[in-house]
Design a binder for these strands. Structure first.
Length: 283
DNA sequence: ATTCCAACCTGATAGC
DNA sequence: TGCTATCAGGTTGGAA
């Protein structure tokens, strides 16, 4: 979703200047190194590897971005209340709240020769990452990644789950097996496949893996179609909210009625992630 | 080799 | 009002 929509704002444009915040955990490449490597470069393509966005530059370097949990990648012209924390918003006039203004959480801003809209990366919790890879350079974070979630097939899932005692959900969240599934989509896919998140991965049948692989792909495709899940922080690059949150069956619906059987959605913790399921539909 | 768990951060919200 | 505890679309590295 983000790749599709931020692509036109990056590809073919020459970077004129780069603004960053102070060095931190967030920058795998130090800000000044990042600036030196980016200024004057033209973005030639934008790819995705799991949850990583990879912008290819005209000198064959790659700018790698991860949005973590609260990362937002958007046009400097975007408008959304989500681009400002509530406390900061309260201090502003209704007028000033309209447009985006870079704040302390806006860690990266790219301006371009064409003087068009900037591309901004904001991340309150700094769980996101920015990394510049020189031509031919690699990074373990990318090398480790498994098959893309949109291309997940039953055979891969079945093979990867053999001998594993971990919960099925833990397997789905393991990016070295399948890359691109986050907490929401793991829960939603498991619901769709009618599988219990806590079920041991090793005892999934071939048929289970088929249902689960299908569910993963269709849930993600549907989320892309509907523009993502704007539950707390997520905004599309133009500031628009996604709509997938309206199609959730289980995620963050603890205590609510199951859309299928009317039972109550339950919440448990699996591999330190909050996990939601319908006890009746998911055996 | 696999599984578990704390750590990295900041903000919103619920409850007292 | 204010304080405290809990929760939040993720990943790593090291201990068990």
């Amino acid at each position: 979703m983000t790749r599709q929509r931020i692509g036109p704002l990056l590809v073919g444009r020459r970077i004129r200047s780069v603004a960053t915040t102070r060095p931190s955990y967030f920058f795998l490449t130090r800000p000044e190194v990042l600036r030196r490597g980016l200024v004057g470069r033209t973005v030639s393509a934008l790819d995705r590897r799991g949850k990583y966005l990879v912008a290819r530059l005209d000198d064959d370097a790659r700018l790698v971005l991860h949005l973590g949990m609260t990362g937002q990648l958007f046009s400097g012209q975007a408008t959304s209340p989500r681009l400002l924390s509530a406390s900061a918003r309260g201090a502003l006039s209704p007028e000033a709240q309209r447009g985006f203004r870079p704040d302390a959480h806006t860690h990266l801003r790219l301006a371009f020769d064409d003087r068009g809209p900037e591309v901004c990366l904001r991340d309150v919790r700094k769980f996101g990452k920015v990394l510049l890879l020189r031509s031919g350079e690699e990074h373990p974070r990318l090398l480790r990644l498994g098959v893309d979630a949109l291309a997940l097939d039953a055979r891969t899932l079945f093979a990867a789950s053999r001998g594993r005692r971990v919960a099925t959900k833990a397997l789905l969240l393991d990016q070295s097996i399948v890359t691109g599934i986050g907490n929401i989509y793991a829960d939603e896919a498991l619901f769709r496949a009618r599988l219990r998140p806590t079920h041991r991965a090793g005892s999934l049948t071939r048929r289970d893996c088929e249902a689960l692989a299908d569910a993963v792909r269709s849930v993600l495709h549907r989320s892309i179609e509907t523009g993502g899940s704007s539950i707390r922080d997520y905004v599309a690059p133009d500031g628009a909210d996604g709509a997938f949150q309206d199609e959730r069956n289980v995620y963050a619906r603890t205590g609510a009625e199951c859309h299928v059987c009317g039972g109550r959605i339950r919440r448990v913790v699996v591999s330190q992630r909050s996990t939601h399921f319908c006890p009746k539909c998911q055996k």
